[in-house]
């Protein structure tokens, strides 16, 4: 399916905070008895629509690879957005945010949009990190913030889409150099760089959310 832009995302955060669940939830891969990733070539991708434009999100999840330090770091290069995830029921995952943020800032391009996510909001009874603390951390470091539940799907769509909106806004404002792929943004095959405001998908773009 054709798209106006492709944004590359990375999902980071401690082991067990629910990174893979967020991705599986967002890409509609949850609740299948078995699926083989080595076959699905488009795993981790989904189409969304912003401002009437089709945007393809390509998401690199670092889940299960946290201990391969040099690998996770090379994913930062060429990412336009990052979801930095912690678990609201585990304070240690919140305490590690500074390290993750430093890591991200060091290895990514300076315009990368970072969304802070407090996951597992369905486990209110076991909450260990107040929502206000997440908000304060985000404010202090200039991040967008949201609490999600990969289990109930609450705010999952919003987390991915709001990040995309922010990136899209930065493109409109001319902050992102869309001709440099190292920024994690690619212009769709039918869109010449000289005319980024061309209508999307040649008018035949299908409904969003069914690309994989």
């Amino acid at each position: 399916m054709s798209y106006a832009y492709l944004f590359k995302y990375i999902i980071i955060g401690d082991t067990g905070v629910g990174k893979s669940c967020l991705l599986l939830q967002f890409t509609d891969k949850r609740f299948q008895p078995v699926h083989d990733l080595t076959i699905g070539v488009e795993f981790g991708a989904r189409m969304i629509s912003i401002d009437g434009k089709q945007i393809k999100l390509q998401i690199w999840d670092t889940a299960g690879q946290e201990s391969f330090r040099s690998i996770t770091r090379s994913y930062y290069r060429g990412a336009a957005g990052a979801l930095l995830v912690y678990d609201i029921t585990r304070r240690d995952t919140f305490n590690h945010l500074t390290t993750w943020l430093e890591d991200a800032r060091q290895h990514s391009n300076s315009n990368m949009v970072i969304m802070l996510i407090g996951n597992k909001s369905d486990l209110e009874a076991r909450r260990d990190v107040k929502k206000e603390e997440g908000e304060a951390f985000a404010r202090e470091h200039g991040l967008i913030f949201m609490e999600t539940s990969a289990k109930t799907a609450a705010n999952v769509e919003e987390a991915f889409i709001n990040t995309a909106k922010e990136i899209y806004q930065k493109i409109q404002d001319g902050v992102f150099d869309i001709n440099n792929e190292a920024n994690g943004i690619k212009i769709g095959p039918q869109h010449s760089p000289s005319n980024p405001s061309m209508p999307s998908g040649g008018g035949n773009a299908g409904p969003s959310g069914n690309c994989c």
Partner: peptide
């Protein structure tokens, strides 16, 4: 290896 581990990780995470 990192990708091999990830494939198995997701196979595990993605299905009950």
């Amino acid at each position: 290896f990192s990708l091999f581990v990830k494939d198995i990780y997701f196979l595990n995470e993605g299905c009950p």
